[in-house]
């Protein structure tokens, strides 16, 4: 009904459609068929997009990847220094100021913060480009090589398009980063405070190493382990689709696809999205576990 529309929903058309979608079989048969196809990498056919789900997800993934990686870099670059400062000056002014911002980030829903940024920087100040996807409408898309616009525009030698793509990234990137920043800053701060109580910190001080060096060389790396777990989890969940942020900024990524699938009752699309999300998340978690070996030599990988 939904797909055909009321004008074409004659009983014959509905029956043909049911057959086409496999809905005439029993549910267990449908399930087994779906799982079988899944093993072959076939996530089904998305009627609302008019293309196979896997193809659509792959087509959209670079947009999500570009946005979330940009946000991720921003987030890590800001949160690690903030966390160290917070941990070092715990309960003093710098820590309190940082806490105010991180709590703000944590308590504001991303869609609200995104809208706020659009309102201030686009509508009021006119500094940011309109929240309409990955490139300004008057700039031509570069030929697709990686699907990442920052890379493709440079490969194409089109500086204007590169700058446009970069401008478009800033607001959604900041939106995503700001929300997750708080979690990382707080984790790092807590672990740093705990690490500073350790015996080997006292040894380092007793050997004459200064407070700052103890903090940055001896405490930081030991405090990093739980923080890396947290950062990995956040990156994984972002890569799986920053749903709300993509909608607010009309970003044509996989999160947007999930929302459209829901809107059109497109099971195959939504299911495909969920499976895709799970796979990405598992991959990132694996990478995080492997990185432990590099941070902490006591971790054995065998």
């Amino acid at each position: 009904m939904m797909i055909l529309g009321p004008a074409h929903a004659s009983p014959e058309n509905i029956a043909t459609m049911r057959e086409l979608m496999g809905l005439d079989h029993s549910i267990p048969v449908q399930f087994i068929h779906y799982m079988g196809q899944l093993l072959k990498g076939d996530l089904g056919y998305s009627y609302h997009a008019g293309s196979p789900v896997s193809q659509e997800l792959l087509r959209r993934f670079p947009a999500t990847f570009e946005l979330t990686t940009f946000a991720f870099v921003l987030m890590v670059l800001c949160s690690l220094p903030l966390g160290v400062v917070s941990g070092y000056y715990r309960n003093k002014t710098p820590d309190n100021v940082i806490s105010v911002f991180t709590v703000m980030g944590l308590s504001m829903p991303t869609f609200w913060f995104g809208l706020l940024l659009i309102y201030i920087f686009f509508y009021k100040l006119g500094l940011a480009p309109p929240p309409m996807g990955r490139l300004s409408p008057d700039v031509a898309f570069p030929p697709r090589v990686t699907g990442l616009l920052l890379v493709d525009t440079l490969l194409n030698g089109d500086l204007k398009a590169f700058l446009s793509a970069f401008h478009q990234l800033i607001l959604p990137g900041v939106t995503l980063a700001f929300f997750n920043l708080a979690i990382i800053v707080r984790t790092l701060k807590a672990d740093l405070i705990e690490t500073l109580e350790e015996d080997y910190i006292r040894t380092a001080r007793a050997m004459g190493i200064g407070v700052k060096k103890v903090l940055l060389r001896h405490a930081f790396r030991n405090a990093l382990l739980p923080t890396v777990t947290m950062i990995g989890a956040i990156y994984g969940s972002l890569l799986g689709g920053a749903v709300l942020t993509e909608v607010v900024f009309s970003w044509p990524g996989v999160g947007m696809y999930a929302v459209q699938s829901i809107r059109y009752l497109d099971y195959a699309g939504l299911q495909g999205f969920i499976i895709f999300y799970v796979i990405i998340f598992a991959l990132i978690t694996l990478l995080v576990d492997i990185s432990y070996r590099w941070i902490d030599p006591r971790v054995q990988l065998d």
């Binding site: 350790e198 015996d199 080997y200 006292r202 040894t203 380092a204 001896h218 941070i295 902490d296 030599p297």
Partner: peptide, 10 residues
């Protein structure tokens, strides 16, 4: 006192 924890593990 505690040699086990007095050195930086990393």
């Amino acid at each position: 006192q505690e040699p086990m924890t007095a050195m930086n593990p990393v």
